[in-house]
Design a protein around this nucleic acid. Structure first.
Length: 459
RNA sequence: GAGUUUGUAGCUCAGCUGGUUAGAGCGUCGGAUUGUGGUUCCGAAGGUCGUGGGUUCGAAACCCAUCAGACUCCCCA
């Protein structure tokens, strides 16, 4: 059979794994620095946990897992009626009762709700795991991909918004990716809907504004009209969207536009609090962006979106404050705020900007050539003694032509080639060649371990 | 769910308006040379032209269907 991969999934070759690990470890270390702790949840959840949480479209994109034992004749009746439901577009527990995780947020909410008695609040967790969506893949979108989330639940404190902004700034600065952190408050959007006299159209307005980046102002206006806003209302939205200037200028104009509006005041207070608690170093990458909306409608306060500077790429991170996430699981009044890192896009950005460090690939740097039976034996012995001291080394497995072995060493990018021929055997030495500068050195076999231990670049 | 597009050797691709035994480069393997650098030379292996139908004297090429990938829309990360 022809080997192939399910649509929208990927293998990660060694070089890629190293690079991804570099990104993940960097972000992880920042999470830990702020006291976030790791959480892992199962790849699959009960289907009820997921269904109905992501909207009608979302339900369709959940990968359902077929129950085992559907061929059990004792259950034939149930199975058949179950299939009738499936054909009707419903789900049925007789056919499927589990599904692959669609994101990390709902499983987290489920976890918090289940363990509310024993968790210490505020609970700060980060989670880096794959999720699955039955979407049609396209550029930068896969059916299996990783999400990297950090959330804190059980506190209303705006200091957490500040922490999360710091986490974004610190992580991307460690990764050397220049970013803008766009910030807005959903309360300003509420204020906008209110001043249009269309509070009930908040979601419609939010969804339309969210597309501004992609489709432009005119199309947004068309969309708003399509969603039932009249000209006067659209004018207000347009006025709101066209506010420009520095952060302070924007905030002043917004205060003016929404003078007397309670929601707006709260929203502006949130943003000001955030700005006032950031060091100027971090503050300079913050962009107040009242056009930021975020598609998901569970956000209630500050929202974030991170954009790489100088790269044509959508957002590489996003998040915000949400109230009552666990309400879905019968636990209400738990406020949370979280951020997410778009690992795959971050990877692409770092690749494009060529910012991956050399050491991202933690390669074995020493190869012993195998130039004869007893020569090879000796080489293997010496390699073993290096390995015992924690120094990675490889031995060419077969006695073949020198050329072939050397070219293997070049292709796999070894730094040191250790050559042992009869001459070396006779004198209990080895010939160590450094391929970075082509210098050769005769090293006594008994000195091989200290020799490499003395090399800074060997871990 | 809808659309566009591609499918020929392990990889990247040629293959003209249908016309003998389907080619190249790279890679792989073998040999010679060099026997401390990717060289050079010689040679070899490797293809049901995605699959199934159809048109034709003749199909990798044209038509239909089907499968798979890539991309776009919807939606999202």
């Amino acid at each position: 059979m022809k080997p192939s991969l399910p649509q929208g999934t990927r293998d990660f070759a060694p070089e890629i794994v190293y690079k991804r690990a570099y990104i993940l470890n960097t972000i992880k270390s920042v999470f830990e620095l702020y006291g976030f702790q790791p959480l892992e949840t199962p790849a699959m959840e009960n289907i009820d946990t997921l269904m109905g949480k992501y909207g009608e479209e979302g339900d369709k994109l959940i990968f359902k897992i077929l129950n085992n034992g559907l061929d059990n004749t004792d259950k034939a009746e149930k199975t058949k009626s179950g299939f009738a439901n499936i054909l009707d577009g419903k789900t049925d527990k007789n056919i499927t009762e589990r599904a692959l995780r669609y994101d990390l947020t709902i499983p987290f909410a489920r976890f918090v709700a289940m363990n509310r008695g024993t968790l210490v609040f505020p609970f700060k967790r980060y989670q880096i795991q794959p999720v699955w969506r039955a979407d049609r893949p396209q550029k930068g979108r896969y059916r299996e991909f990783y999400q990297c989330d950090a959330d804190v639940v059980g506190s209303d404190s705006l200091l957490y918004e500040v922490e999360l902004a710091q986490i974004y700034a610190t992580a991307f600065s460690k990764l050397k990716v220049p970013v803008e952190i766009h910030v807005n408050s959903r309360k300003l959007l509420t204020a906008l809907a209110e001043s249009c006299g269309a509070a009930e159209k908040l979601t419609s307005i939010t969804i339309a504004i969210d597309k501004l980046d992609k489709i432009g102002l005119e199309k947004v206006k068309e969309e708003l009209a399509g969603r039932g806003l009249d000209e006067k209302q659209i004018d207000i939205v347009e006025k709101y969207l066209s506010i420009e200037g520095s952060n302070t200028e924007k905030l002043n104009q917004l205060a003016e536009l929404f003078a007397g509006n309670e929601s707006a005041k709260k929203g502006l207070d949130e943003i000001n609090f955030l700005l006032n608690h950031l060091t100027s170093n971090i503050g300079k990458s913050i962009v107040v962006d009242q056009t930021l909306a975020r598609g998901l409608d569970y956000y209630t306060g500050i929202i974030f979106e991170v954009k790489a500077v100088g790269v044509q790429m959508g957002s590489i991170g996003g998040g915000g404050r949400y109230d009552n996430l666990t309400g879905l699981f019968g636990v209400s009044g738990v406020s949370g705020v979280g951020v997410s890192f778009g690992i795959d896009r971050i990877f692409d950005v770092i690749e494009e900007l060529q910012l991956f460090p050399e050491e991202a690939a933690n390669k074995c740097k020493i190869i012993f050539l195998n130039l004869g039976e007893s020569e090879g034996e000796k080489a293997f012995e010496l390699a073993t003694s290096l390995r015992e001291q924690g120094i990675a080394a490889e031995v060419y497995p077969d006695v073949t032509k020198f050329d072939k072995q050397f070219s293997y060493a070049k292709k796999k990018d070894f730094q040191y080639v250790v050559i042992i021929e009869q001459k070396e055997l006779d004198s209990d030495t080895c010939n160590v060649k450094d391929l970075t500068n082509n210098e050769q050195q005769i090293v006594a076999m008994t000195d091989i371990v200290p020799f490499f231990q003395g090399k800074q670049d060997i871990s």
